[in-house]
Design a protein around this nucleic acid. Structure first.
Lengths: 210, 210
DNA sequence: GTCTATAAAGGGATAGAC
DNA sequence: GTCTATCCCTTTATAGAC
């Protein structure tokens, strides 16, 4: 769902919904304007009437996802929680989010591989915090003896690798591991617990004495 | 490099080299026959003279990579090494391999997203071992008290997530983390050590008493 | 606003000369 | 074997009727 208020007419909204579905599944290059028109139950020419070009329509679709997807990674670290609970909360919520939006990671990866200049202009929309704040957090926890000292880039990279990769690779994993959709869903659920364990044991996490 | 012996003529070889480069960068849908012809320094018609169609040329390119890429994951576990050295060797060699072939993971992910039927026929070329053997290994190590008991799917998924994801996402990571090529290469090198640490601490690895 | 018809360009594939 | 010319289909985008 793209819309929230009344910024778009009914037809515009139908087009946006159809476009989102098709673009997320096929990417920019793979999507066909005719397919979007069919999915929206309207005519090809109307797409251009409302959005001028394929690229402009694509940008309308991508914007709200960028604003959502990237900052999400940084929220939980600023909350008032014990460090282990932050990790658990992040992993659980991020994997749940990805299960609900399974095409999103591939979608972004694809854009940057095939249209890096476009990605450059897109990424400016989402204001991504820099690493200093997270690094200070990690240093503070290390100072208290709760975790061992670790670089923020490596910390975040480890975390998102473990969360995102299984979803990017899911169709390939199902093939190679010979898993049904159900079995794969079960594995994803299990991973919420396992990924937290991996991170916390790596950091040698010890509950703070208060 | 595709060729090894004299199976291909000079022109064929030039086409294969050019095609590999373009297909790996752009994928099947994104690649243009004209671009391949230009890169090979020959004419579009000649591509079809030698390889009939775009799809057939694509298959020639992909075959040797499939045979190489997938089985590589399973070799080291059958070697005669201590378990920690197996992990270290796998991580180090696999990340090195990926650094030398940075487009390969995206290439495969892309195929299965956009041409799943094609991937199905491709995957049959590479005979991928099933998990039973690796699971037995892990059980044996757990039995000796070297590591804790762990599921082979989760073990392998963790390992390849940590190795592959940074390379799939590299252009995006460079943007988000504001890293130069050099800084990013440094991070990848550091990860060889870190990923081993993560895996071994998760498994609660303890050197075997002999 | 919505449709039909069509222009314009791109790209895979083939025919035929050399 | 290699080239030029061209076919033909697909796809984006627009013109113009209603």
């Amino acid at each position: 769902m793209i819309n929230d208020n009344e910024r778009f007419s009914d037809t515009e909204q139908k087009i946006l919904d159809a476009a989102e579905q098709v673009f997320l599944k096929k990417g920019l290059a793979g999507a066909r304007m005719l397919e979007i028109a069919d999915a929206a139950g309207i005519n090809k020419a109307l797409l251009h009437y409302y959005f001028r070009s394929k690229d402009k329509l694509f940008m309308e679709i991508i914007k709200p996802h960028v604003v959502d997807f990237f900052p999400k990674i940084f929220y939980v670290w600023m909350e008032d929680l014990d460090f282990d609970n932050k990790v658990k909360k992040f992993v659980s919520e991020y994997i749940s989010f990805l299960i609900s939006n399974p095409d999103l990671p591939w979608f972004f990866i694809n854009i940057i591989h095939q249209n890096p200049e476009m990605m450059l202009s897109i990424i400016k929309i989402a204001d991504i915090p820099n690493m200093d704040n997270l690094q200070k957090q990690l240093n503070a926890e290390a100072g208290k003896g709760v975790i061992k000292k670790v670089n923020a880039h490596h910390f975040l990279l480890t975390l998102i690798s473990l969360c995102i990769f299984p979803l990017i690779a899911s169709p390939l994993l199902k093939l190679c591991f010979e898993l049904s959709d159900n079995e794969f869903s079960k594995i994803l659920e299990e991973r919420k617990k396992i990924v937290s364990e991996i991170i916390l044991s790596w950091l040698n996490f010890k509950k703070e004495k208060k």
